[in-house]
């Protein structure tokens, strides 16, 4: 890709590590993943050679942790005024949007990769279907991208990182729970079936659970990719429309 996009990506990725953000994020993420897999998910008690105890809780972990790495992306630029510097360099707004998103996504991917001891454990203990596990990792990565794109757009909307964080959680929560029975029950009876299906179709959970069963449906992959694209575009629009209020 262009030199501008690459340099924005590099700057953003390194700045996660020049501040404690990356380390705190990775450590907390790995610790919580462990807690949920082994205690809440009952990894050993289930006695099955798969990682569903691990992947079931990923959406809920991401829901709170991903906004923590997306909140600074633009809010900090607005607060410190560097957004003016960045957008007057020969960098297109799209390159900046994409570079920042990819940097945050790379951090999420790194954190996800660092869960490999769980994968080793399950392979040591039994004979899991590694194809399913790989598909689940891919699904988790796509889902992280979806949360990140939402979080980045929320970060573009404000100069306050806390507001960006809370807005991102709220929106991500909506996109997560819309597939839960409790939400769908709300639509039952009065709403036409297509509406309930539509709401369920918008849920991360619906698509994530299909993918993480090892069913690599193009529709589910496309869902996440188009969701990412849509929110990146919204983020781009917010930046373009809110240039003056930084």
């Amino acid at each position: 890709m262009s030199a501008a996009l690459t340099s924005v990506f590099k700057r953003e990725f390194t700045s996660y590590f020049s501040t404690p953000v990356a380390i705190v994020f990775i450590v907390i993420y790995l610790m919580l993943s462990g807690v949920f897999t082994f205690y809440v998910g009952g990894f050993y008690e289930r006695g099955q050679a798969d990682l569903s105890a691990f992947f079931t809780y990923q959406p809920w972990l991401f829901l709170f942790l991903i906004p923590a790495i997306s909140m600074r992306l633009w809010a900090e630029e607005r607060k410190s005024g560097t957004i003016e510097l960045l957008l007057t360099l020969p960098v297109g707004t799209w390159s900046a949007v994409l570079g920042k998103f990819l940097a945050a996504w790379a951090l999420a991917a790194l954190a996800l990769m660092l869960t490999f001891p769980i994968w080793i454990t399950v392979n040591y203990l039994g004979d899991p279907d590694n194809g399913v596990i790989l598909a689940s990792y891919l699904a988790a990565l796509l889902m992280a991208g979806g949360y990140l794109a939402i979080g980045a757009a929320m970060s573009a909307a404000t100069r306050n990182q806390v507001i960006a964080f809370v807005l991102a959680i709220a929106l991500c929560f909506l996109f997560t729970v819309s597939g839960l029975p409790i939400v769908l029950a709300f639509f039952e009876g009065w709403a036409p079936d297509w509406l309930a299906t539509l709401v369920a179709d918008f849920s991360f959970l619906t698509h994530f659970s299909t993918l993480s069963k090892g069913v690599l449906e193009a529709a589910d992959i496309l869902y996440f990719l188009s969701l990412i694209g849509l929110w990146l575009f919204l983020g781009y629009l917010i930046i373009e429309l809110k240039r003056e209020d930084n």
């Binding site: 030199a3 501008a4 690459t6 340099s7 924005v8 590099k10 700057r11 390194t14 700045s15 020049s18 501040t19 410190s80 005024g81 560097t82 003016e84 510097l85 007057t88 360099l89 020969p90 960098v91």
Partner: peptide, 27 residues
């Protein structure tokens, strides 16, 4: 070349790292 009001900079970078970033963006 533009110096915005208040000379905003990426505080978490070193001065050299920041200039390196600018150089890269400028190709």
């Amino acid at each position: 070349g533009y110096l915005p009001e208040g000379a905003p900079l990426y505080d978490d970078m070193t001065a050299g790292g920041f200039l390196q970033f600018i150089a890269q963006v400028r190709g």
